[in-house]
Design a protein around this nucleic acid. Sequence first.
DNA 1: GTCTATATCATGATAGAC
DNA 2: GTCTATCATGATATAGAC
Lengths: 201, 201
Amino acid sequence: MAKDNETEEKILIAARLEFQEKGLAGARMQAIADRAEVNKGLLHYYFKNKDSLFNAIFSKAIRQLMAEIFPILESKLPDYEKFQRLAERYTEHISKNPELPKFVLGEISKNPQEFFQRFLPENAKGAARKMLDNQQSEQAGQEISVVDKQHYFLDLISMVLLPYIARPLIEFFFALEGNEFNQIMSERKTHIQTVMTKIMK
Amino acid sequence: MAKDNETEEKILIAARLEFQEKGLAGARMQAIADRAEVNKGLLHYYFKNKDSLFNAIFSKAIRQLMAEIFPILESKLPDYEKFQRLAERYTEHISKNPELPKFVLGEISKNPQEFFQRFLPENAKGAARKMLDNQQSEQAGQEISVVDKQHYFLDLISMVLLPYIARPLIEFFFALEGNEFNQIMSERKTHIQTVMTKIMK
DNA sequence: GTCTATATCATGATAGAC
DNA sequence: GTCTATCATGATATAGAC
């Protein structure tokens, strides 16, 4: 029936909010039902149990978090361009999904090995290292060493992700109100690109 | 008796490990007792309940995370020196307490306002902003604007903290084994200082 | 598909013997 | 101070009426 998708969709949206806020262990099925404005029993009609509902949410989230990085890393762009593109695209992507990094990193660290084998293909292991390797040494003038590139990559994702992970604390210690946090974040795309340029000099 | 402190100490250590790994909601009193190798009933002899045990752990953690930042921000050093000092001291501090940022930030984001009023004095609000304000404009040559300083401060704590928060994911995608993560982190103090110099140019 | 009632289970907490 | 046994609660999960 028509109601099918509608109800399931409401549940998925509510579950995402609840899991993002409280984590798997802290989330309550009753709270999800309340947010979705459906009966608690319905959750079990659409999803086998809490775990499978969580999986539906989490697997999508982890894919979203990775999906923007890998195509750029895999591309044949020169290193400098890669990092500029990453800065641009990833800041945009995260600003539209600001809860993603906190959620995914928080849950992964509670049980890393389980999450890796449940949500990531075995061949994903070491993928970033391979992509940062100096495969195209025919490239122009100054090469960047692999070790340096590792650090630059860490610098980049750090500057993009951490403010969202530490958002409440930043808002508190900077006494940010209303939309101020988002304003600062909107400046960050340009800022981080500038920084990356300076760093790689 | 002599056993007092010893047992309580074992419980505190075990509780810290369990809470850091699983968070407040995910931690189990039985697991804490097992780690401490004491009977579960003893937890309630030394601490009223799970919440008060958590408070003992968390309040210390949040103080540790802040204690290194504020003395430096409050000092009368020129801006450039402040950031260099922060890079040096904070990387060292975090490398000795690598679980701290993940734990504190993770728990705070589950219920920000509650944590702030329970663990931070009201006058702490906006403290960082005040300290970054251009109070000593008598200072040498080039001033840094307050807005820029906010970004530099975010850059700095991002580069220091995020690798530890994302550690499992980084180890996975870079296929790091054994001590490799710590080796990379040991290079970071110098790296971040270099980066901050370039950025503030 | 939706709802109510209830079974089952896990876990935090307590009481009391030693 | 330490241990065992037990309780009480709250949350997930199921059965079955509508």
